[in-house]
Design a protein around this nucleic acid. Structure first.
Lengths: 126, 126, 126, 126
DNA sequence: GTGGTCTAGACCACG
DNA sequence: GTGGTCTAGACCACC
C-alpha cells in the first residue's frame, strides 16, 4: 500500500501523509472507506505507532480523513477538501510562476510543459 | 536588505540563502558586486556570524556567489547558474502540474494564472 | 578507526572526510552499514561534535553516505558514487600526467610504477 | 606573463608559485635568467608586494630560483631541482595509483590515459 | 539516543 | 578587516 524511502530527508510521518493524500486525491481510496488501523499500518511499515498516529492526525486536520474514536479512520468526501486543495495548488502555482517570471523564463516554455503533462487530446479536460 | 521570519520553521541560514538567491536571480544584485561581509550581515540581522557563514557557503556551493578569502563574497555572473536554475524550475513545474492534473484542475485555470503573473500586455514577453 | 594528524594543516573535518572516503571506497566499510554516531566519533577523536557533523554533511553531499535523521548515518551503495569517483580519478591522472610529460619523465618510469602498485601477478587484475 | 584567477580558492601567492614553477619546468624561463623584481611583478598583478615576496621565498626554498640580495632573483639550473621534482612526481603518482587500485580501476584504462597524454609517436620519449 | 541548528567567543591565514 | 575553522554548551524535532 505504501512504500517508505528512508533516504528521504523529510520526517517519516510526512511521507506517510503525502502518500495517503495522493491516494485519496487520485481516487485510489473511496470516500467513507476505512483506513488501516494505526497499529496495523505501523506494523506493516515496521514503524513506531506514534509516527502513524501523527500522520493520521495531520490528515484529519487537513480534512482528508475523519476519525471516529474507537472505530477507526475514514476517508472524507471529495467535496469537503476539494476547495482547500485547489486553493493551495493555486498559491503554489503563482509562487512558482513569479520565480519563473523573475528568472526570465519564456511563457511558451510553460505552455509546452502544460501540454506535456495534460496531453494534447482535448477530451482529457476535467 | 533582508528580513528574517522567526515564525518560519526552516533554519535561519536557509532563509538567508533563499532571500539572497531571489535577489540575485531577480537582478536585485549586480554581477560581481560585493555582498555584505559575514560579520556585517550577522550584526545587521542580530545573528551569529557562523550562521551567515553557512548561508554564504551554501550559496557558493550552488554557484550563485564566489568567495575570495580575505576579500569578501561576490555575485556570480548570470550565465554560470542560469542553465541549472532553469532545469530546477522545469522540474518543480512538472511536479506541480502532475498534482494539478491528478486533482482534476482544468487547463484553463492554469492558463489564466500564467496570464495574471506574466501580464496581459504582449510587450512583457521575455 | 581513525587517527588524526594535528600537524596536518588541513581542517580536521576534511581529514575525517578523507579517511572515511578511503575506508568506504576501499571496501573497509560495508554498504548500508552504520557509521559511528556524531557524538560517539567526536568523543573518540576528542573533537567537538560540530566538527564531525560537518564531515558527515560533506560526505553525504558527495554521495558516500546517507543520513536518516534520528537514526544515524549509513554507507551508500557502491554503484551510486562509482561513476563520479572514476571521473575524478581520471581527471587527476591526466593532470598529473601532463606535469610528468612537461618535466620530461620517461613513459617507462610510469609503467614501472603501475607495475609496482598493481602487482606483477596477472591474477590481481580487476 | 602570469594571469591570476581570483576565484581560485588557494591563496594568491600559491598560484604565483605554481605558475612560475610551470614556466621554469617547461623551459619557458632560461636558467640563470633574471625574474621580474618583487615590486615590478606586484605592480603588474595589482597585488601586495608581500604576496610576491612570499611566492619568491617559497620558490627559493624549493630550489627553483636563487636570490642575490640587492641584485634580484634568478632561475636555478635544471640539474639542481630535477631530482627533487621527479621524486615528488613519483610520490604523487604512487599515491594516486593506490587510490585507483583500491577503487578497482583496470590497468588498461591507466595505460590508455598515458597514451593520450604522451602521444602514440615513439619519438616523443625524452 | 540521533541528527540538525544556533550562540558566544576564540584563533588563524590571507592580503 | 576578511573568510575559515574550532570549541563549549545548548535546544529542538524525530523516532
Amino acid at each position: 500500500m505504501i512504500v517508505l524511502d528512508y533516504r528521504d530527508k523529510r520526517p517519516i510521518y510526512e511521507q506517510v501523509v503525502e502518500k495517503l493524500e495522493k491516494l485519496i486525491i487520485g481516487g485510489g481510496l473511496e470516500a467513507n472507506s476505512k483506513l488501516p488501523s494505526v497499529r496495523a499500518l505501523a506494523m506493516e511499515l515496521s514503524v513506531n505507532p506514534n509516527t502513524i498516529q501523527r500522520a493520521y492526525a495531520q490528515l484529519e486536520q487537513d480534512g482528508y480523513i475523519y476519525t471516529i474514536i474507537g472505530r477507526g479512520n475514514y476517508v472524507t468526501d471529495k467535496s469537503e477538501w476539494q476547495d482547500g486543495h485547489f486553493k493551495t495548488l493555486r498559491a503554489d502555482f503563482t509562487e512558482l510562476l513569479k520565480q519563473a517570471h523573475a528568472a526570465g523564463m519564456p511563457q511558451t516554455e510553460l505552455l509546452s510543459l502544460i501540454q506535456a503533462v495534460y496531453g494534447e487530446n482535448k477530451e482529457d479536460l476535467t
